[in-house]
Write a protein that binds this DNA or RNA. Structure first.
Length: 429
RNA sequence: GGGGGGAUUCCCGAGCGGUCAAAGGGGUCAGACUGUAAAUCUGAUGGCUACGCCUUCACAGGUUCGAAUCCUGUUCCCCCCA
């Protein structure tokens, strides 16, 4: 195989630890089968999973066969790694629905039809459900020395805390994940498991188990956690809401904006971890970021690459189109459908058309009913402080009344509070 | 079981009979600056039919012209002793 994936991952900084630094590069000269597990805690993946998805994609592009494992069974238990407290268990129905949601998103990243190295999607519920408790204890549990289990960071950390316990259920989690690896090795010849750095214990548990059960040598690689320059996990907006991959939960526009707003210090890491741009280009961007940070070339490329991958060319185009309007000048002379396409995730409120007749609708009432202000008092303050815009034109008079003259299109008035918060007012009837 | 302390507006935390919609900080929102950044600075931050009115200081009563502040009971929290 011509492409040295190990070297590529190394310079990108994607390798935190591996079970065999010396031999893995040559071992990967042959096509291998590699797996990463995903937790079905929601019906969509979020930005936090991007790095893992990209890792699988990178391996596939390098000629290896990726397996995405959805943890329908393990999700029922809950991984204690990195969790400070016992997890709430998800119901079977929720899990099933979540698994379906994740599958469709995986297809954006992996090619399932590629023949030899076509991606595989598996759900560990399919094989775990058949196990009886006794069988599991005899076949799998027997291979786990408790003293080794106790030494794992995930377990040790929890036992040392006086305020959070660890149930037998969660304690058993690593057996399940370990068995997954052994099972995938048996059924699909999978030999390499990748995970975040917090997965090291679970991965090595799988390697040990496979050695005992099947006398084979498997490998593991962990990636660093994707954190920002302050050490917080990447994937949440300033407001603390997660950035999801599904357009229902996070619109392409907001998704695109999330990357556009990435701080300089984190842009380089994200480019390396989350895009497939070649080394020369990323290094050129590093340089550009130092020389002309105000151009934000890195953020633009980052947003472009990731948005295109997650939402497709159309999604990217929509996001960029919306960006132009959002950060452009006055809004007028547009058609209804254009506005509504541009502002897909902007909340819209419908008011009767008659409100605009006569004296018109008070701006304060409009803001409050559109949800841009919690109360009319708050709306008044915003106006007085110069933070309110109608069709992107500042309004300073709290007594202003909206009339038909303020329509940006046939039926829509665009309200804005501050720099970025928009709301549409649709006047129908 | 005995003793003590506490519950204040989004959060922390002052206030201990009127001058209290309640200090200060955090957060949040807005403005300026800027790179749709960071930092910084400024203003705002219970509601309303808005120079006035209404509802807030755990809950329910009471004392008083007047209570977040005093009294009684209830609930919850914390600490100390057993």
């Amino acid at each position: 195989m011509k492409f040295d994936i190990f070297a590529d991952l190394s310079w990108r900084g994607l390798i935190h630890q591996s079970t065999d630094d010396a031999n893995l590069p040559t071992w990967l000269d042959q096509p291998r089968t590699v797996y990463i597990g995903f937790d079905p805690t929601a019906d969509s993946l979020h930005v936090g999973s991007l790095m893992q998805l990209m890792l699988l994609r990178r391996f596939q592009n390098a000629g290896h066969r990726p397996i995405a494992l959805v943890g329908g069974a393990t999700g029922m238990i809950g991984d204690p790694s990195g969790k400070s407290a016992e997890r709430n268990l998800l119901t079977v129905d929720t899990l099933r629905a979540n698994v379906v949601g994740l599958e469709s998103q995986m297809r954006r990243f992996l090619d399932f039809e590629a023949g030899e190295n076509g991606a595989l999607l598996v759900n560990n519920f399919d094989w775990m459900r058949k196990f009886s408790y006794l069988d599991f204890l005899r076949d799998v549990g027997k291979n786990f020395p408790v003293n080794v289990m106790l030494a794992k960071d995930s377990v040790k950390g929890r036992l040392e805390r006086s305020d959070a316990g660890l149930s037998y259920t969660e304690f058993s989690y690593m057996l399940l994940q370990a068995y997954d690896f052994a099972y995938l090795n048996e059924m699909h010849g999978c030999e390499l498991q990748i995970g975040g750095s917090d997965q090291w214990g679970n991965i090595t548990a799988g390697i040990d188990l496979a050695r005992r059960m099947r006398r084979v040598q498997l490998y593991g690689i962990t990636s660093p956690l994707l954190t920002d320059s302050e050490g917080k996990k990447i994937g949440k907006t300033e407001g603390g809401t997660k950035v999801w991959l599904s357009s229902e939960r996070t619109s392409p526009y907001l998704f695109y904006q999330y990357w556009i707003n990435m701080p300089d210090d984190d842009a380089g890491t994200c480019l390396r971890f989350l895009t497939e741009l070649p080394r020369e280009e990323i290094e050129a961007l590093d340089q550009a970021r130092r020389d002309e940070p105000q151009r934000r070339e890195s953020q633009r490329r980052l947003a472009e690459e990731i948005t295109r991958l997650v939402h497709g060319t159309e999604g990217l185009a929509a996001a960029q189109g919306a960006t132009q309007v959002f950060f452009g000048g006055e809004i007028s002379g547009l058609a209804d459908h254009e506005l509504i396409e541009i502002f897909p995730d902007v909340p819209s409120t419908t008011i009767p058309k008659t409100d605009l007749g006569g004296e018109g609708l008070g701006i304060l009432d409009a803001l409050a009913s559109a949800g841009l202000a919690k109360s009319k008092g708050e709306a008044r303050r915003s106006v007085q402080q110069g933070g309110i815009y109608v069709n992107n034109r500042r309004v300073t008079d709290p007594e202003k009344r909206l009339t038909a003259a303020d329509l940006a299109s046939e039926t829509v008035i665009v309200l804005r509070s501050g720099k970025k918060r928009y709301a549409l007012l649709r006047c129908l009837g």
